[in-house]
Amino acid sequence: MTENTVSEIERMVITRVFDAPRELVWKAWTDPKYIMQWWGPKGFTAPVCQMDFRVGGKLLCCMRAPDGQEFWNAVEYHEIVLHEKIVSLMYFSDSKGNKIDPSELGIEHEAVDGAYDVTLFEDLGNGQTKLTFIGNEPMESAKNSGQMEGWIQILDKIAAVVAELVHAK
């Protein structure tokens, strides 16, 4: 019997094509002012978002559920290639950014050991950008836990932010 490695496990992958230049999609993904508009699935808000966007830096966001329950997430940045790629590690945290076990919040979350989240921004030409998010959760677990549906809803919210940026340009 062999142990699973990162490359052997099918990870959650979500893509979305935006009718916007790559720089605007990048801006929507990396500016706290815009992150607060899309962080969390449909019906959730993000009342707090602090960001030190650099390798070694960290994002700390509060995601508030419709019932008022708050969930904090932290993101550590491990690699940033301007307008192309972000490699990060996202986890549930307390309000100070200290990692906590998702089960403390009643959340099932299975991460792939040693895997980072990877976000790719691809210029498709004709003013279109393809965003690919590769999560650190196995695909099957992401589907079963609702993570997949949550990310699809988040990408819908990002699309609305990107559309506003396009119209404001």
Rank of each mutant, 00 (worst) to 15 (best):
T2H: 14
L89G: 01
Q147Y: 10
D31F: 05
L165T: 12
V25T: 06
I152D: 12
V25P: 05
T30Y: 10
I86S: 04
V25W: 06
S95C: 14
N4D: 12
M51R: 09
M36D: 07
A142P: 00
T132D: 10
V17C: 14
W38L: 02
K42N: 10
V118I: 11
H78S: 05
E3M: 08
N126D: 14
K96E: 05
G114Y: 02
K169N: 15
D123H: 09
I100R: 00
C61T: 07
Y34N: 14
A20M: 11
N4K: 15
K27D: 07
T2F: 10
L120Y: 15
M36S: 11
T30G: 02
A163M: 10
E23V: 10
S141R: 03
I9K: 08
K27T: 06
W151P: 00
E10Y: 12
L59D: 00
E76D: 13
F53I: 00
E23K: 15
K27P: 00
R11S: 15
T2S: 09
V112Y: 03
L82R: 13
K143G: 07
E76P: 00
L165G: 09
G125S: 02
T132I: 08
G146T: 08
N4W: 06
T45Q: 03
D31M: 04
E110D: 15
S103W: 06
K58F: 01
G135R: 06
G97L: 03
S141E: 08
H109K: 01
T119R: 13
R11I: 01
A28D: 01
I100L: 01
K143V: 15
S93A: 05
T45A: 05
E137K: 03
G114L: 09
T5H: 07
E8Q: 14
V55Y: 04
I158Y: 05
K130Q: 15
V13F: 12
I158N: 02
A115Q: 12
R22Q: 12
V17L: 08
H109M: 13
G114K: 13
A28P: 00
V17H: 09
K42A: 06
Q37L: 14
I107L: 10
I35L: 13
P66I: 07
G97A: 04
Y77A: 00
V112G: 03
E3G: 05
C61W: 01
S88G: 10
D19W: 02
E108F: 11
A20Y: 02
C62H: 04
E104R: 06
I152G: 08
M51N: 11
D113K: 14
G150K: 07
K27Q: 15
W151R: 15
H109T: 02
W151L: 09
A159R: 15
C62V: 03
